[in-house]
Structure formats: structure tokens, C-alpha cells
Nucleic acid binder design. Structure first.
Length: 513
DNA sequence: GAGTTTGAAACT
DNA sequence: CAGTTTCAAACTC
């Protein structure tokens, strides 16, 4: 189709260039393509950090800079990427956006049912969506499909996080509330017109794939279906919402059998987050907060600032959870009123070098020399830049203090690696020893009886090791030397055990026991 | 673990 | 916008 300019184009936000698409087809039979559902996308755009932009609905029948593609199957994955075709997958998963400097938006197809509610699963850093069957899908006066009423009962979805599968309840529509697992802009509240429920809905029919110029649409934009063009709309979602899905290992949101036609929602992206590689983010789960006075509803709280619910935190009087949704939304709005970019990653790319990362606002350190984790630049392992207003900054490339710190850090890292390797080796040797001492006496083999590693032997060994530690301490040996002494003693102990076992075996053989 | 320091966020 | 206060994390002892 010939590209058509979008009439209501607004400048794109500076959202992070991390995008991917989650799509899910649910109950595609419930609506016929001819059903003329009003272009009301009664869902809430999942957004975390988009600037305050008035919510808008764009009718796809309007002139657009769009290209329509047809894809087989019922799944939709639209990714406004540099190479979109490579990321459109007619499978039930995810289209992973590329990483680059351009502004990408994540498009989540919207239809009229079922409802989707954001949820956060305890123990997970993911934000999931909860599919809610809509018994009021025809509240706009449109005839409901024959199967609309057939899905009356809320059914759980199975959430799989790696090897663990959790059941996520799907609440009945009457209990459905808006949930904001990610901070929302005011623009994120998609305007509902005639429908009472706000719903973010997955495509319900095998529809033409629409590939508008999403990159230029502001977060919060809702693309409503054109009349006769099917019952699907699209919501533009800032990348930050999606990035949270990437912070944990591979996860599958698989629907239960109650949604036979539905697809799983999967995240399998490994994309940078906040300047860190995905590997870094996945390997370092967020630290629990310890907020006491902010109710975790201010940016002091890292969880809140990251757009996450508190989970396994040590906070007191926490309101950053589903139970305090209203307060949380209000707090989000307050933060965004104060700073529309409050929830955007602070570490972005610098203007000059593509590889350069820098703090979006710069730090204001006065006493730390920007060489302690008080400094947000240093904490993010980046140099201070010209936009920093720090005093006495030592966090620059040529800084000798910084180099010294880096060397120390490197040395410490090497040390840790060495210790880890030593432990691994020791563990391997112990395993090997135990393997060799498995009870095979009766078979006449050469192995030693493991019964020689008795509790008493273990205790004696520990005493020897402790004694060695004391000795090292008394002689003020450096830690490395102390460790060496202890390990050496451990080796001696092992040798004695082996030797004793060997003798015992020989004795045993001599008396035919 | 308690107390101190620090700088971002919030407030005035 | 600048100065001050609040807050929670980082750090020190």
C-alpha cells in the first residue's frame, strides 16, 4: 500500500531505543470481522515514561503514513523497526526490536475483547498482562458475538518463568481494575468514550497487518481501527514498559486451555536496559528497597523510580503495590507532572559517540569526587560529561584517581575469579574423591569405602582447618597466605583420609571381611 | 548493625 | 530558579 502521511503527527519522545512487541491472539472467534465496533480502544496504553502528551485516537481511515501487510495466522507482531520485516513473526511470540538511535515504539494491537490487565507476579520482575473476559464487550451497543457470553468464567493463565510455572488468576471482569505496573503518563490513559471499562485488547481476528510509521507516533497514541477494517487498534507503548520484561530470564506467559486460540506471550529479548547490557541486567536482580517514609511512592524509592512494584523489599508502609493502585497512580501522575521524563532511563547515549553513554541530566556531586556510588554517573560506570555540574570531579578518562580505582577494582575482580576457580577445583576434587570412595568394596574394585568420611572425620578435618586459620591469624598472615595455609591443611587431611582408607581396605582384604 | 555521609528528589 | 529539607542508598566504623 502506498504510504500515506499521518495527519496528527507529533514529535516522537526520546524513549529508549529498546522495543519489542508482545502480541497475543485471544479468542479470535468471538468477533466477526464485519462487526462494526466503534473505534474505541478502551484499554490503557502501557507506558512508563512517555512525556505528557494528550491521549489521542487516530482513526486508521485517516491519511496515514502506513503500510499494510498481511501476515498468515492470527498473531500480530508489529515492530516499527529499521528492518521491520525481519521482526514480524507470525508466531505466538515476540518481535524483538533493534537497538539503535532511532525512536521506536512498541505497538500492542488492541481489539475489543478480551480485556487485558497488567499485573505483577510476586517474585518476578516482569509485568504481565492479565486477560480478562469481558461480559460487557457489547456495552457500546454493538451486538456481541455468539461466543462472547461463552467466556464467562475467569480462567487462570499459566505464567512460566524458566522452570517455574505460576498460575496467574484472571479476574472476572467485574472485579477488574486498572493496574499500573509501570508508571504512566497522563497520556497513557487512553480516552474511553462510550465504554465504561478501559481495556487493552489483543487482536481478535486474523487481520491485516498494519505497519504505520509508528516511530513518529508519541507514546500513548491509540490507533483505532478503520471502519470495516477489522476490530483491531494499536497502542503505542514506550519502550521502557517492555524493557522490564527483559530483565529476567526467559519467560513465557502461556495461556491455559481456556484460551485455545490464544498464544503465549514470550519475552526472549536480551536488549540493553538503562545503558547496561541485558546480560548485566538479567544477572543482577534489582535490590530490594528499604524505604520507610516515602511509602515507596516517590522517586527516592528505586523500585518506584524503575516503574516496578515493590517485591521482596524491606520497605515500611509500602504503597507501591496492587493494593494501593489509586495512590500509586496518583503518585505517578505527580511525578510526571513534575518531570515528564521522570521514569525514563537516566543513562542514555551521548550526542557525539554512538558508543558513549552518559547521564541524561548529569550529576551534581560535591564531595565524592564522582568516584563513589553516590555519583549516578560513577554508579552507572560512565564518565561524567559536560552536562554534569559536579565539583572536584575525578570521574574522567585521564583521572589518575579513577585509573587507580579501576585497577583496584580489576585486581579485586581477578582475585574473586581466582578464588572462585580454586573453590571450583576443590569442589571438583572432593567430588572426585567421593566418587572414588563409593562403596564398591564388595565388588572387589579399587575404590575406597566412603564410610571413612564419617562425621568424626569431618569434625577432625574442620578442627584442623580452624587450627590452621588460628595459626595464620596469630602470625598475622595476609589473607591470601591464610587461605593457602588452610587449603594446604585441607589437602593434608584428605591425604590422611585416603591413606587410612587404603590401609583399612588392605586390612579388610587380608581378613576377607 | 549503628551511625554518618552523600546527592537526588522534593519542597518552599 | 535557587535554597532548603527530606529521603534512602552508600559508606564507615
Amino acid at each position: 500500500m502506498e504510504p500515506i502521511p499521518i495527519a496528527k503527527k507529533t514529535p516522537a519522545s526520546s524513549a529508549a531505543p529498546i522495543k519489542f512487541i508482545i502480541t497475543k491472539t485471544v479468542n479470535s472467534k468471538t468477533l466477526s470481522p464485519q462487526t462494526s465496533v466503534p473505534p474505541v480502544i478502551a484499554g490503557r496504553v502501557l507506558t512508563q515514561s512517555s512525556p505528557v502528551i494528550p491521549p489521542r485516537t487516530i482513526n486508521l481511515s485517516e491519511p496515514h503514513n502506513t503500510s499494510i501487510q498481511s501476515l498468515p495466522g492470527k498473531k500480530i507482531a508489529i515492530s516499527p523497526l529499521k528492518t521491520p520485516s525481519k521482526n514480524i513473526k507470525p508466531v505466538q511470540s515476540v518481535a524483538v526490536g533493534g537497538v539503535g538511535g532511532s525512536q521506536f515504539k512498541t505497538i500492542i494491537p488492541l481489539a475489543t475483547q478480551p480485556n487485558v490487565q497488567q499485573i505483577q507476579v510476586p517474585g518476578s520482575r516482569f509485568h504481565y498482562v492479565r486477560l480478562v473476559t469481558a461480559t460487557t464487550a457489547s456495552s457500546t451497543g454493538q451486538p456481541s458475538g455468539p461466543s462472547t457470553s461463552s467466556i464467562q468464567t475467569a480462567k487462570p493463565m499459566v505464567v512460566s518463568t524458566g522452570a517455574v510455572r505460576m498460575s496467574v488468576p484472571i479476574v472476572p471482569p467485574q472485579t477488574m481494575k486498572q493496574v499500573a505496573p509501570k508508571p504512566l503518563t497522563s497520556a497513557a490513559q487512553v480516552v474511553t468514550t462510550t465504554q465504561t471499562q478501559q481495556r487493552l485488547i489483543m487482536p481478535a481476528t486474523p487481520l491485516p497487518q498494519i505497519q504505520p510509521n509508528f516511530t513518529n507516533l508519541p507514546p500513548g497514541t491509540v490507533l483505532a481501527p478503520a471502519p470495516g477494517g477489522g476490530n483491531v487498534g494499536y497502542a503505542v507503548v514506550p519502550a521502557q514498559y517492555v524493557t522490564q520484561l527483559q530483565q529476567s530470564p526467559f519467560v513465557t506467559l502461556a495461556s491455559s486451555s481456556s484460551f485455545p486460540a490464544s498464544a503465549g506471550i514470550q519475552t526472549q529479548a536480551r536488549l540493553p536496559l538503562n545503558g547496561l547490557s541485558a546480560a548485566e541486567t538479567t544477572s543482577r536482580p534489582r535490590k530490594p528497597c528499604n524505604c520507610t517514609k516515602s511509602q515507596c511512592l516517590k522517586l527516592y524509592c528505586d523500585c518506584f523510580a524503575n516503574g516496578e512494584f515493590c517485591n521482596n523489599c524491606n520497605c515500611n508502609n509500602c504503597f507501591n503495590n496492587l493494593e494501593h493502585e489509586t495512590e500509586r497512580l496518583k503518585a505517578i501522575k505527580t511525578c510526571l507532572d513534575r518531570n515528564p521524563e521522570a521514569f525514563k532511563p537516566k543513562i542514555g547515549k551521548g550526542k557525539e559517540g554512538e558508543a558513549d553513554r552518559r547521564h541524561s541530566k548529569g550529576c551534581n556531586c560535591k564531595r565524592s569526587g564522582c568516584l563513589k556510588n553516590y555519583c549516578e554517573c560513577y554508579e552507572a560506570k560512565i564518565m561524567c560529561s559536560s552536562i554534569c555540574k559536579c565539583i572536584g570531579c575525578k570521574n574522567f578518562e585521564e583521572s589518575p584517581e579513577r585509573k587507580t580505582l579501576m585497577h583496584l577494582a580489576d585486581a579485586a575482580e581477578v582475585r574473586v575469579q581466582q578464588q572462585t576457580a580454586a573453590k571450583t577445583k576443590l569442589s571438583s576434587q572432593i567430588s572426585d574423591l567421593l566418587m572414588r570412595t563409593t562403596p564398591v568394596v564388595s565388588s572387589g574394585g579399587g575404590r575406597l569405602p566412603y564410610t571413612f568420611v564419617t562425621k568424626e572425620v569431618l569434625e577432625a578435618t574442620c578442627e584442623c582447618l580452624l587450627e590452621q586459620a588460628k595459626k595464620a591469624e596469630q602470625t598475622h598472615q595476609p589473607r591470601a597466605e591464610a587461605e593457602r595455609m588452610i587449603l594446604e591443611e585441607f589437602g593434608h587431611c584428605l591425604m590422611r583420609i585416603i591413606s587410612s582408607a587404603g590401609k583399612a581396605k588392605a586390612d579388610c582384604a587380608s581378613i576377607n571381611c
